[in-house]
């Protein structure tokens, strides 16, 4: 809060939001309209002063992503056949195998993308959605950065799905060695997509509304 006050100190007029001014802003292109306009005159996007269904959609996608995240980790991601022997690897199993092969850097990348990012994203989105309705311990700027990080980094979890696709197409030597995708690949891809949709449903203006309500 202190930082905010310092920044505003040199600014004689308080910041005004479109909603306070009785206007509606387009989140797509920034164009400002009189209240009651349905579609943006510049870009054609649907206008709403605040997305009232935002939190509902955030939680719906969040739960869908979480439910499907369990089979994604419990079932095999990759099925390897070497001379008649079948190995099944889960996501975590794949990371452990990389460590066994001393590929620590790549193991780190896969661990970060397939385990750290999804878990971190569930926590971050839940915190952001929760903090809109309750007292937040993190500053507005902090939560804004958190939201941007979630939006930016979430899609990178898809790495493991692509790895499975490439390996399965490349390693096809009949019974000598072959790699097939496991059922977890589809659950994991869906989980990533659902959490991306969850993050996209979040209306970041809600982060700043709380501050507005507090100063009034």
């Amino acid at each position: 809060m202190q930082v905010d006050d310092l920044e505003n100190a040199g600014n004689p007029t308080p910041l005004l939001t479109a909603r306070q001014a009785g206007l509606v802003a387009c989140t797509g292109c920034g164009r400002v309209h009189e209240q009651g306009v349905e579609r943006c005159e510049r870009c054609g996007a649907h206008l709403s002063s605040r997305d009232t269904t935002s939190l509902q959609r955030v939680w719906a996608w969040w739960f869908a992503g979480l439910i499907i995240y369990f089979p994604a980790n419990l079932y095999p991601m990759l099925i390897t056949n070497t001379l008649g022997t079948e190995y099944k690897n889960t996501i975590l199993g794949g990371v452990i195998e990389l460590i066994d092969h001393h590929s620590y850097f790549v193991a780190g990348v896969v661990f970060f993308a397939s385990i750290m990012i999804p878990v971190g994203k569930f926590i971050a989105i839940a915190y952001l959605a929760y903090s809109v309705r309750h007292r937040a311990t993190m500053s507005d700027h902090g939560r804004q950065v958190l939201y941007e990080v979630v939006e930016f980094i979430g899609r990178w979890s898809m790495i493991d799905v692509f790895v499975v696709a490439i390996l399965s197409s490349l390693v096809q030597f009949n019974f000598v060695a072959s790699i097939h995708p496991g059922i977890a690949a589809i659950s994991f891809a869906l989980s990533v997509a659902f959490t991306m949709l969850s993050a996209q449903s979040f209306d970041p203006r809600m982060i700043w509304d709380a501050e507005e309500a507090a100063t009034e």
Binding site: L16, A25, C26, G30, I207
Partner: peptide, 12 residues
């Protein structure tokens, strides 16, 4: 038409 709103926080 002379304003632009921040898509993130609605500030004019």
């Amino acid at each position: 038409s002379e304003l632009v709103a921040c898509p993130n926080c609605d500030t004019l």
